[in-house]
Design a protein around this nucleic acid. Sequence first.
DNA 1: GGGGTGAGTTGCCATTTGGCGAAAAATATG
DNA 2: CATATTTTTCGCCAAATGGCAACTCACCCC
Lengths: 132, 132
Amino acid sequence: MNSSRSDLSEILRQQRVMMSLTLGELAEKSGVSASHLGRIERRERFPSGRILRRLAKPLGFEENELFALAGYLSPTPSSVAEESPAYVGRRLDPYVARMLAQEPVDVQRAVIGILSILKSLAGSMAGERDRQ
Amino acid sequence: MNSSRSDLSEILRQQRVMMSLTLGELAEKSGVSASHLGRIERRERFPSGRILRRLAKPLGFEENELFALAGYLSPTPSSVAEESPAYVGRRLDPYVARMLAQEPVDVQRAVIGILSILKSLAGSMAGERDRQ
DNA sequence: GGGGTGAGTTGCCATTTGGCGAAAAATATG
DNA sequence: CATATTTTTCGCCAAATGGCAACTCACCCC
């Protein structure tokens, strides 16, 4: 978790120099103070997300790109491949959560209502079957 | 700009509740102290990128997704373009989340299946009615 | 030589972050 | 109802962030 990932600071400075911006100009464009920028470039400070975000456009970066460079994002976001093993227990599946969250709350509640009806139905049917 | 973009904090809390994790458990999984997590959820603290990143996987988020929700990234960077806005718009009712989380994952998924069937049914019925 | 002028750096400080441990509030058990 | 036990919140503190103003270091012109 160290700075060996080809150093955001270096990249920032290089990009700034390439666009032939001074610290002051970049400060003006980005709304981040020049002194802070300077310290970031020589890694005396580590920019928060807020700052990083303000720097992206003035330097011609995509925001995600910068975040990735900063190590905030993993280099390969890939996709939702590896999520199951941890959550098998009695947790709400993220996919399910996402789907349901798209519905209005009353629909969500109705779904729970239907579920409990089905469960009690299943319960009584099992009871009948057992009784026979 | 405004922190009111549907409140990361709320989303974090809801997602945690959805997965029926306690602050302590999430703390353990994410390596962020429980007290800090608590304060983030009730927006007394605003998580840095580092913290946000640690929270993503334990909560079943894609990192970019979380960053987008936090307002660090612009709303539609690329990949997660379609699910984020919906997710941002509506939220999963905590009661519903609790109820569903008690069921095994396949039951949860079945519930979603039933819901989508009902929705498509309702859709086609509305279509027929309109046509007449 | 003595002054500007523009760039980067440093000193200082208010504010925020984030962790640890204790208090308080909920929940579970008797 | 009391009382363990878990879960959340609070108090406090060290460390980090980020801005302002002052400083240094060139370079240029007179």
